[in-house]
Design a protein around this nucleic acid. Structure first.
Lengths: 162, 162
RNA sequence: UGACACCCAGUCAA
DNA sequence: TTGACTGGGTGTCA
């Protein structure tokens, strides 16, 4: 890995390096019978931390995206990281965690139309895992050829085949 | 058009044929700045009566739905129809015309909470146009793949872009 | 509180 | 192209 590549994985001003991870979910036959969900976590080329796993439980694209983010946070915690930048193409995950969850905790996890928040337990797990960590959520558009996202996508798709 | 198709556009018992029309409204950016409303009227495949128009005045989904119904009635009158079945996915329109309007006429067009009925003039136009006609209002669920409704929806969406 | 629409956004797929 | 996963919002009424 040359220094150019390293710079892509760490950012911050004034020499501070904040580790960056790309996460993505995949779900073959999403919304149909026999759907298969997988999650991908990409820390860098050939990084042994990289994850490509089949997701358990609910087999939907949203579950897959949420599970990928949760996995990355758990890994960061086990490495004693206290700051982390998570890049994902899911605005659902980002807004859920950074904007909607505060309200959900206060209103008993009800949607704007009065229904239950479907992925509540996954959001709660992410919330729990995030305690004590400084996490910055960053949106990356999908399928735009952005390296980290493409790699995470590949890992997720592989994971869904297991 | 085979007899199966014809049967879809005309109904009634004992050989009586009542023309059926599907109406729908659309409103891009409903409730936001720059909203654009359109209405669609579907009489049948490639029927020259079909309407796809931009709606004038108030740019809301309800105005669009009401305007579509009004248009269909005006068309029916100009063809000297005395009976008509109107299919719409708007319970607001159906209940407004068939249940609430009687009361509104008696109470000075006041809502249950004492406010003015917002779409009063559109309801009044429909009421006026309906004089002397036997109109049956029928609810069709939206986006359920029901042909007539889908076509009216498409026409309405097109209309909103003009 | 309920109901039916009309949208906005991003994914995941076939 | 069409469909599912999910959220936020307005339009309107009872």
């Amino acid at each position: 890995m040359n220094s150019g590549e390293r710079r892509r994985q760490f950012s911050g001003r004034g020499g501070e390096r904040i580790p960056t991870v790309y996460v993505d979910g995949s779900c073959k036959n999403n919304g149909r019978d026999g759907a298969k969900a997988g999650c991908g976590v990409f820390w860098g080329p050939n990084n042994p931390l990289n994850v490509s796993e089949r997701v358990s439980g609910r087999q939907t694209n949203q579950t897959a995206e949420l599970r990928a983010a949760h996995k990355a946070i758990e890994q960061a915690k086990s490495l004693n990281m206290d700051k982390l930048i998570i890049e994902t193409d899911s605005k659902f995950v980002i807004q859920g965690v950074t904007k909607w969850m505060d309200n959900w905790k206060q209103n008993g996890w009800k949607t704007a139309s009065g229904r239950d928040v479907v992925n509540r337990s996954d959001f709660e797990k992410i919330d729990q895992a995030s305690r004590g960590m400084d996490i910055q959520w960053k949106y990356v558009p999908g399928h735009q050829g952005i390296k980290g996202n493409e790699e995470a996508d590949r890992l997720a798709t592989e994971g869904s085949r297991k």
